[in-house]
């Protein structure tokens, strides 16, 4: 069991670091999805550990949410990409302090 948790933690961390260091919006976005899936793994593992289904059900919902997020995220990134012909988050810099 612990292995799964550790794995999920590692995945989560990779996703998290990825979001922070990568500059391409799509990659950042994929890292976020990785974080969500790491959470799913943890949820399912804990569900198994506790012997109830809450975690698994939650994983389902998370998938839906992730899907919705993908749809919306892609739409937003697409519009930006089409405008600027670049998906780098650094190029999006009109908003400054």
């Amino acid at each position: 069991m612990t292995h799964y948790i550790v794995l999920s933690a590692i995945l989560f961390t990779i996703g998290c670091v990825g979001v922070l260091v990568r500059r391409n919006a799509i990659v950042v976005f994929m890292c976020i999805e990785l974080m969500l899936n790491a959470s799913n793994l943890a949820l399912v593992t804990f569900a198994k550990q506790h012997g109830n289904l809450d975690g698994q059900i939650a994983a389902f919902f998370v998938m839906v949410v992730a899907a919705a997020e993908v749809v919306i995220g892609l739409a937003i990134i697409m519009t930006i990409f089409r405008t600027r012909r670049s998906a780098s988050v650094d190029d999006a810099s009109l908003l400054k302090y």
Binding site: A68, V70, L74, M78
Partner: peptide
């Protein structure tokens, strides 16, 4: 073409529906 993205998005939505 953007079309492919739209198809992908639609697929995701429906696939999730199937999951349920």
């Amino acid at each position: 073409p953007v079309k492919y993205y739209i198809t992908a998005m639609l697929f995701i939505v429906f696939d999730i529906e199937i999951i349920f």
